[in-house]
Amino acid sequence: MVTLDGEYRIAVLHQAAPTPAIGGVLKPVKPGGYKDSSADLAYALHLESQDACTPSIKLITPSSSPDPSKDADWSFGDYKETILEVIEKHGANVLWANTNVHSAHALLDIAKQHPDILMVGQDPRHVDNYDDKAWVNRWLQSHAGLEGTFPQTWIVPRDTPEVLASIPLPVIIKPVRGRGSQGVAYCRTSNELEQRAKKLWETGSRVVIEEFCSGEEVTITVLPPGTYDPPVGVKDKHWALPVVRRFDHTDGIMPYSGGVPVTANSTLVPLEEASVDPEYARLQKRCELVGQALGTLATIRIDARRRGQTASGMDREFALFDTNMKPNITGPGRPGRDDQAALTVLAAGGLGWSYRDLVRNMLRQAVKLRCLL
């Protein structure tokens, strides 16, 4: 964590610049480029700046009088020219990268010119690999404590479709580089699997197929080392927030949060329930090991499902299946946004943190851009 002697002059960045194809696969862009969540967190920062307890925060916005109901008034597109203008003309010294970064992202060039600017976000140099669902799960399983913690997985290239016939059903099929539940499907039959694979092969040369874990689904948020508000304090390693349970799946898959708010199908696992089932604590520990292995600089979210039940009806262990380098960070505060608490916001509520508390604590873990050089 890096602190400033003076004022935090913060500019929030949303996704506007085109994302390059990697290995022939283009990651889908969220409609609006995260302008909605960027406006949510920028508005929370604005409220912090108005609070007499946090006078050291100033928010820089595209509009001189941003309207809480207008997403576009609160954040800047992540073009190099735009970022330089925000720094050199408007005096920003903190960039909140609420966007999908990659190895050609503008922040890497900005770091060369302004290495002492602070950033909240991930290291763009590593995200290309970490966003590759085929690569990252295999790589993570090579780390101590994570062996065997992911579902059995098959990577099927477009030019070997015959491999599909040998894969035991049911399975989950997904794109190599996905976003949320987009392109993810539960396949019970060989025909379903073949049709889904053909559709995904139109946008990439490979597909990821995983064994279907039929049990409880949860999500874990992992934060980087640093100093946090009570009741957390100082953390010298990556650490996990309380567990959030997912429910009301549609055909085996969680629906897209843009269609169904996560507040309608997700809830904290009660602490008394988590305390009597050691699998929750084991899962949190494994997710912390994921954060340490990846060396993440900001918040990540990891999804997991139980492998089903034993013959006696006991819940089996959790399998980790998806690491989200850019977790959604929508939150309440602006008009009409009361039901837009993201999974990470729900998890933070387990510590007694509000959305503003979470945003403030994420800001405190900002790093200097020189760490990207």
Rank of each mutant, 00 (worst) to 15 (best):
M1H: 09
V2R: 14
R9H: 06
A17S: 14
G33L: 04
D36P: 01
D36M: 14
D40I: 04
L41K: 03
A42I: 12
Y43G: 03
L45C: 04
E48P: 00
P55D: 08
S56Y: 15
I60H: 02
T61E: 11
P66I: 04
K70T: 15
A72V: 12
A72W: 03
W74A: 00
S75V: 06
F76G: 06
G77M: 13
E81F: 03
E88I: 07
H90T: 01
A97K: 11
V101A: 03
S103K: 07
H105G: 12
I110C: 04
A111L: 10
A111E: 05
K112V: 00
Q113P: 08
H114T: 03
P124L: 06
H126V: 08
V127K: 00
N129D: 12
N129S: 14
K133C: 09
A134N: 08
W135R: 11
W135S: 03
N137P: 01
W139V: 02
Q141T: 15
Q141E: 15
G148E: 05
G148Y: 03
T149N: 15
V156C: 02
V156L: 00
E162G: 09
L164T: 11
V176R: 15
R188I: 05
N191W: 00
N191I: 15
N191V: 15
R196H: 12
A197K: 01
K199F: 07
K199E: 12
R206H: 15
R206Y: 14
V208A: 11
V208F: 13
I209C: 07
C213W: 09
G215L: 00
E217F: 01
E217I: 05
V218Q: 02
V218S: 06
I220E: 03
T221V: 02
T221M: 12
Y228V: 02
P230G: 02
P230R: 10
P230N: 07
P231V: 04
V232L: 14
V232F: 12
G233V: 05
D236G: 02
K237W: 14
K237I: 08
H238N: 09
H238A: 13
L241G: 00
F247S: 09
H249R: 12
H249N: 01
G252M: 07
I253L: 01
I253H: 05
P255A: 07
S257W: 03
G258D: 14
L271I: 01
L271V: 10
E272P: 04
D277G: 07
D277R: 04
Y280L: 02
Y280S: 10
A281D: 11
Q284M: 09
Q284P: 01
Q284G: 01
K285R: 15
K285P: 02
R286C: 11
R286A: 12
L289T: 07
A293D: 01
A304Q: 06
R306P: 05
S312A: 01
M314E: 15
F318E: 08
A319S: 13
D322K: 09
T323K: 03
T330N: 03
G331N: 06
P332R: 10
P332I: 09
G333C: 13
P335Q: 04
D338A: 15
D339I: 01
D339T: 09
L343S: 09
T344W: 00
T344C: 15
V345P: 06
A347S: 14
A347L: 13
L351T: 00
W353H: 07
Y355L: 14
Y355A: 14
L358A: 10
V359Q: 08
R370D: 15
L372T: 11
